[in-house]
Design a binder for these strands. Structure first.
Lengths: 222, 222
DNA sequence: ATTATCTATAGATCTATAGATAATGC
DNA sequence: ATTATCTATAGATCTATAGATAATGC
């Protein structure tokens, strides 16, 4: 009944931007599948038909969202700070994040179409940056494992909200993950020198006797 | 037109079991949302209406799937082998896995209803077992981070299929993650003694100057 | 007059149910 | 006769489109 109950201000550019903003938030919060075009239009304060007028399809809108920000954080962060910075970003509150591409990545794991290619590209670029941090063999695999850890922390934190990780401070998480990530990226194939002090026999792979974790080539010489 | 084109063998118990098996597979492969009751019935070779007759609803079937196996791997594995064994299980081919609960967990992150409670319970029990491996402070948080790594590796491997991780051997993954997980669980709050040899300045958290990863207290003495 | 916005609805799913059909057990 | 199985469909979404309405610019 109010005068402006419909017919917003007639600014196509602003409406497009509002739809992109709303879609970016919702895709990050719920993933592609669980976000409906009506949710997006509603949060943008726009009519649902405009989404199709301006973007063509829900999938094209997803693509526009992923390309717009352009992996801002990845490009702005030097590789040696990328892990810690991405981690920090994942642990911030929803409102104060700038780049939500990693979140969108891990919430849209079922997406198959156009978004999948962009999602995969994002993964490739993060992994490439992380791989540049190590000269060890298996650099690419080590980088994938670091990326996997980032995504897993985001998963447990944002999706499952499991405590204590869900409410841990970014500093505590960084303090505990930092040394382990360095071990992952820097440790070469030798028996570890000064780490076997605390627990008796943690995490020995039981199904891998021929190619175990500390192979035959010993620490001294090749 | 064939004689047995419909009307299967009339064995309610077998049909229920077939529905449970098919649901277990599909929920693990696609998650709860992306699996339809018709998919499940089709793979089970059963009529779709029987799913509702025997389980009541799709959500109740999900609950039945999660409770049936009863976290078999978690219960059968001593904590010190849990990480490596769960990792190994995640890296096997789809067909040769026994316990797919972790996969279902990470693919059903959007599920809100009855399945969410079971999903969360699974996470709690894995984390508790992993936390028993360390006497360090923050044991529960360290365990959550280890669980997050498991889930992240499963995510990158099974969902995104990103190479080289997607095609890496379980042995290689265990060899690279083992030392890092030991660092995560065993390393106490001091500068690391013999690891800073390879890369110049990897993974320094830029936003945490007061409580950085290698704090003021140096390696020599307390 | 142009075109951004809105209404109404087609068409495709998907979960769930009601009631018909047909295979087994007494 | 009992009951496992199947057919048909209701009812609720969800994406997408066609065409009406109304706000701006010349």
């Amino acid at each position: 009944m109010t005068a402006e109950s419909h017919a917003r201000k007639r600014d196509a550019a602003a409406t497009k931007a509002a739809l992109l903003d709303a879609a970016e938030q919702l895709f990050a919060e719920r993933g592609f599948d669980r976000t409906t075009v009506r949710d997006i239009a509603s949060r943008a304060g726009a009519n649902q038909a405009l989404l199709f007028r301006y973007f063509g399809s829900k999938e094209a809108l997803f693509e526009a969202v992923m390309t717009r920000g352009g992996f801002a954080q990845l490009e702005a962060t030097p590789p040696e700070h990328l892990f810690a910075e991405a981690l920090r970003s994942l642990l911030l509150d929803d409102s104060e994040r700038r780049d939500r591409s990693l979140e969108t990545y891990l919430r849209s794991t079922g997406t198959d179409g156009a978004g999948a290619a962009l999602r995969d590209q994002l993964g490739e670029e993060y992994a490439r940056a992380l791989a540049s941090l190590t000269d060890e063999p298996d650099a690419a695999l080590r980088a994938d494992l670091a990326l996997a850890w980032l995504l897993g922390i985001g998963l447990v934190r944002a999706v499952t909200r499991k405590d204590p990780l869900a409410s841990a401070s970014p500093e505590d998480v960084a303090r505990l993950t930092g040394p382990a990530v360095r071990t992952l990226l820097e440790r070469s194939e030798q028996a570890e020198p000064g780490v076997r002090n605390a627990t008796p026999a943690a995490a020995a792979p039981p199904g891998a006797p021929p190619a175990g974790p500390t192979p035959a080539r010993s620490a001294s010489g090749s």
